[in-house]
């Protein structure tokens, strides 16, 4: 599967490839809040700060393994973060941040049978999905949101947005491609 993003070359991604140290700062400015928030919702605040540091250091160390044709930097960083959070949970042998877990369970009773690691995977996916949607143009985003949240059929979306069905389909197709670059990074 080709996950080539159709957005223009990202300077942070390009800098990562070139080993340009300023790219690390750029990547941090762009994705630091995403990674930190993900960590903080998965572990305690102090560990979250440490993990965030480790994610960016590990990413920088392994930057020659980053391939933008196989996924976005955000998706790659989140993959590293997910592994570090799961490692920490395994190391501690318990689910950290029980309050967060209970909140989550209260909100989504369907999650009640999800283990800690599945919950972490889902949280990462949700946050990446949101990030990916933000990068779509407003029309494509609206089309996808109608498909996702309102469960409308494609002809219904076309009618509601007053768009040709072909446009709705191509918007959805492009949106899916973009989402894959965030949620399915095919890195090592």
């Amino acid at each position: 599967m080709t996950n080539a993003p159709d957005n223009p070359t990202d300077p942070a991604e390009q800098g990562f490839l070139n080993g340009d140290e300023s790219a690390l700062k750029l990547a941090y400015d762009q994705h630091g809040a995403l990674i930190y928030t993900f960590c903080k919702r998965s572990v305690d605040a102090e560990s979250a700060a440490d993990l965030t540091q480790e994610v960016f250091l590990a990413a920088w160390k392994a930057r020659d393994r980053f391939d933008p044709s196989r996924g976005t930097l955000a998706g790659w960083l989140m993959g590293i973060a997910k592994n570090k959070v799961i490692d920490l949970h395994r190391f501690r042998g318990r689910r950290v941040n029980e309050t967060e877990l209970q909140t989550e369970l209260a909100t989504h009773t369907d999650d009640s049978n999800l283990g800690g690691e599945s919950r972490i995977e889902l949280l990462a996916d949700k946050m990446l999905l949101n990030e990916a949607l933000k990068t779509l143009n407003p029309r494509s985003r609206q089309v996808l949101e109608l498909a996702f949240y309102h469960d409308l059929t494609h002809p219904q979306i076309a009618e509601k947005c007053d768009l040709p069905l072909g446009t709705v389909k191509s918007d959805i197709r492009r949106g899916l491609q973009r989402l894959r670059t965030y949620l399915d990074p095919a890195h090592d």
Binding site: G32, A33, T37, T52, T107, L122, K126, L129, E145, F148
Partner: peptide, 15 residues
């Protein structure tokens, strides 16, 4: 995944 997305998932906190 989108069906699980809540407002709290969209709020990011700066480190």
């Amino acid at each position: 995944i989108a069906a699980e997305l809540t407002e709290s998932d969209t709020k990011l906190e700066a480190p």
